[in-house]
Design a protein around this nucleic acid. Structure first.
Length: 486
DNA sequence: AAAAAAC
């Protein structure tokens, strides 16, 4: 088979703003809780494009007409949490978690989000760069703790697991906020007798809709709506409808915050209608890949060999923790069964399992009791487990309708389960035929990635290449905590 | 032809 690496490494045809100064090639140091970017943001005197207040090498900030005051300190961002003037209880929470300095997305987005009048936000930032803490701080700043059981903030996520994780982050950062009550609106979590009795509600769309319809969720006092993984939530048939319907039932003046690492143009148009007059923070798509993730691919001779290769990789997968992504629930369970029969300890998580079972499986993975997790796209987005040092795309992610098109966004979200907050990690994508090969080539071209080739016949080289990365990760004690404090 | 998300 031809060499994918040479096929995909093409000169960049990216129209980079040539007025922008080149980014200093600083190493991605973990600093505070924000290792995002490389400190390369340098303002450019543009002013030509309407509404484009600032262009930098890798990020565009576009202010809403509602806050389009260039003199405003909102526009340039803050360099410390103190400047935000948040209540002491919230600052104490940040302190306890060892969050010293805001990450790039937090610096820029927070002042815009917490100021009055409340203004909508569409924010894009790479995976593992502090988006969750950014919207959680906004939510906490808006909640009146004197009304602990009156719902005031609603957060929506595309999976049960992500909703629970966000709930955990809110409770961690808000640990010193007296009377803060946070509930998860996911199947099986809200009492049928009492309904929602919390100031902050984080849930999945179906359950939230259901609760509102049953009048078990009083939305009349909601001040802020956050949609995480917003491109996915708004794009999908089903969830997009539900998000629209939910919005229709909320107070018209509610502040809407949309967050994701990816915002394809097609969805961006819809997002701008959903969150009207929003401030926008957007990255160029070439800037979306995280520098700390070494992206590799394994050139397998055929489909059945993929399993053998996976088993051979087991030793490398358990140096840290690993996530293996497959296409279907069935193959996730099937590969788990075979690997266990072959003497490997692995677990599998997907949507066919009961909610409580899913909770326990992810808790085990977070705590390190299980180190290798086989899963579907249910965990492709948002899940933050800092020990994950390897992600395997056993199946290359494809868009629906006949697998004709690679799923660029899902690829980026999947590999983003490692390399969090400036840590390093490895991703290995399996290709085995012309179709998977072409799909990965297209992904690599789209993001201008140089993929490192691994051969199933040269294990010494594979081990060397993978360990090189993972060992450098272990040699760095300066890692920032993630938003869950680990 | 998949996954996810409601009862």
């Amino acid at each position: 088979m031809a060499d994918l690496a040479s096929r995909i490494s093409k000169p960049s045809d990216a129209p980079v703003d040539d007025k922008a100064p080149a980014a200093p090639d600083a190493p991605a140091a973990a600093e505070g809780n924000g290792a995002e970017g490389n400190g390369a943001e340098q303002p450019v005197d543009d002013g030509v494009q309407r509404g484009l207040i600032e262009t930098t090498y890798d990020v565009e900030v576009k202010l809403s007409d509602l806050q389009a005051d260039q003199e405003s300190p909102l526009y340039s961002g803050v360099s410390s949490f103190e400047e935000l003037g948040l209540p002491k209880s919230i600052n104490d929470g940040l302190l306890a978690m060892n969050f010293k300095k805001p990450s790039k997305i937090q610096e820029r987005a927070l002042p815009l989000m917490i100021s009055d009048p409340p203004t909508n936000m569409i924010a894009q930032s790479q995976s593992g760069t502090g988006k969750t803490a950014a919207f959680v701080l906004t939510v906490l700043s808006r909640v009146d703790l004197a009304k602990p059981t009156q719902p005031q903030a609603l957060l929506l996520a595309p999976s049960r697991e992500l909703a629970r994780q966000i709930q955990g982050v809110i409770q961690t950062i808000g640990q010193f906020c007296e009377n803060l009550v946070v509930e998860a609106a996911i199947p099986g979590s809200i009492s049928r007798e009492t309904g929602v009795r919390a100031s902050v509600v984080v849930g999945t769309p179906g359950t939230v809709m259901d609760l509102i319809r049953r009048r078990q969720f009083d939305v009349s006092q909601l001040k802020v709506l956050v949609i995480d993984e917003a491109d996915n939530m708004l794009d999908q048939q089903g969830m997009g409808d539900q998000c629209l319907r939910v919005k229709g039932m909320l107070p018209k003046t509610i502040q809407i915050l949309l967050f994701s690492a990816t915002f394809p143009d097609k969805v961006m148009n819809f997002a701008r209608k959903y969150a009207a007059n929003a401030n926008e923070i957007k990255l160029r798509h070439q800037e979306l890949t995280v520098k700390g993730i070494s992206q590799m691919y394994m050139d397998c001779p055929d489909e059945t060999k993929k399993y053998d290769v996976l088993c051979k990789l087991y030793g490398l997968m358990t140096i840290g923790s690993s996530v293996i992504f497959v296409k279907t629930r069935e193959s996730a369970s099937e590969i788990q069964r075979r690997m266990e029969a072959d003497g490997h300890k692995v677990s599998a998580l997907h949507g066919a399992y009961e909610g409580q079972n899913r909770d326990a499986l992810l808790d085990d993975f977070r705590s390190g009791r299980s180190k290798v997790l086989i899963t579907t796209n249910v965990l492709a987005r948002g899940i933050d487990v800092s020990s994950v040092s390897m992600v395997i795309n056993y199946d290359i992610p494809m868009k629906g309708f006949g697998d004709r098109e690679p799923d660029m966004e899902t690829y980026l979200h999947r590999i983003g389960r490692t390399g969090r907050f400036g840590r390093v990690g490895v991703s290995i994508s399996f290709v085995y035929d012309q179709k998977s090969f072409n799909a990965l080539s297209q992904i690599a071209n789209h993001y201008d990635i140089d993929l490192v080739q691994l051969s199933p016949d040269d294990w010494d080289m594979t081990e060397k290449k993978v360990q090189e990365v993972i060992k450098s990760s272990r040699a760095r004690p300066d890692y920032a905590p993630n938003a869950l404090g680990n």
